[in-house]
Write a protein that binds this DNA or RNA. Sequence first.
DNA 1: ATTAAATTGACCAGGCTGGTCAGATAATTT
DNA 2: AAATTATCTGACCAGCCTGGTCAATTTAAT
Lengths: 203, 203
Amino acid sequence: MEDKLSNLDSEKRIKIINSAMEEFSKNSYDKASTNRIVENAGISKGSLFNYFQSKEKLYNYLEIFSIKQLANEIGKKVNWEEPDILKRIKEIALIKLEVFSKYPYLLGFFKRINANKSMEELKAIYEKYVPNIYEKVYYKNIDFSLFKEDIQVKEVMNILIWTFEKMGENYLKRIKSGEKVNTEEISDELDRYMEVLRKGFFK
Amino acid sequence: MEDKLSNLDSEKRIKIINSAMEEFSKNSYDKASTNRIVENAGISKGSLFNYFQSKEKLYNYLEIFSIKQLANEIGKKVNWEEPDILKRIKEIALIKLEVFSKYPYLLGFFKRINANKSMEELKAIYEKYVPNIYEKVYYKNIDFSLFKEDIQVKEVMNILIWTFEKMGENYLKRIKSGEKVNTEEISDELDRYMEVLRKGFFK
DNA sequence: ATTAAATTGACCAGGCTGGTCAGATAATTT
DNA sequence: AAATTATCTGACCAGCCTGGTCAATTTAAT
């Protein structure tokens, strides 16, 4: 059996992944403790090393897992025929939030990877596991003629993306602190911001 | 002598502060190593404990230092008579960038504090060391009649703040990775975004 | 009842911990 | 130049924690 993880009960698997992501997102690789990972995951030391063989392989697994997890969900769930960038961005924001709710330390873990790898290394990894992601996400089939005539598209695109990213980060913080966040409430707020941005930058 | 740090050569002091902030921003309090702090700061173990007595006191010092550092610079340098929110935000973005360039791990250290303290604790600390900061920064003497008539002010305010925060974070990342970032180039880009935002949301 | 698979946790050698303090070095005063 | 004071150093401490192993136990399948 190659992948000993896939045999596992999914609840248990998620618990291990979350515990490991938490530890690696809070401490540098060297200082991250496998003892604490197994403790918080509720499994024994032996099991962890049975599943992953070594700390390094566990880390590598998480790296690829986190990239795939997010990209696959986006790839599957987004309506790629939608030409309205704001609707596209809202869709992605909600998908991200869903994934981050399931794996609360994924974003923090991502930021670690980001901080430790050069831009080229990162792009190479993305290309390997989710080809063409960069050209696709915010561009595929988007109708750029919907922007106001005299507007600087590149800057507006960033403003849109950043706004929804910041909203997502804020929700994530609330979720992590234990608050029960209502999905409808979120969708409503996203819509409110969408409306404001539409009024400002679109025909 | 109460504050043994103020006697120090300022270059040395900054090196110690930066080294400690780096370690505390990369690792949780328990895992942060005083050995590595002195190593990167280029001082001896004995000196560190002579200046700060204990790891805990060092951490507390950094906490207060970082809050004061940023707030004082903003308090001093911002033109509080300026009623244009975009100019205010640009000013603050530049000040932040200046401070973060001097202390590259201050933002990361901040985020740690943020993650470990409740909203109430944080507000209490801010009120203690920089009273009224919340009401002041983005509101004092700002002319809210400059917004477009039919616009939702709260949402636009967040969009403005978030946009400039994200730009700042991106610059900081480039600075940390060793890139020499031109101040004029930054100011120009901030102006470009200001213009776009002005066209979208202001009269 | 037997076999096979999954899980446990005590155990290892050795690195790293926060903190101390006697002695070295540098700066100041006489 | 000598004496005094202030600053700085790094070897040293007891003991906790490290990643990883593996014989023994529990659970599941036959």
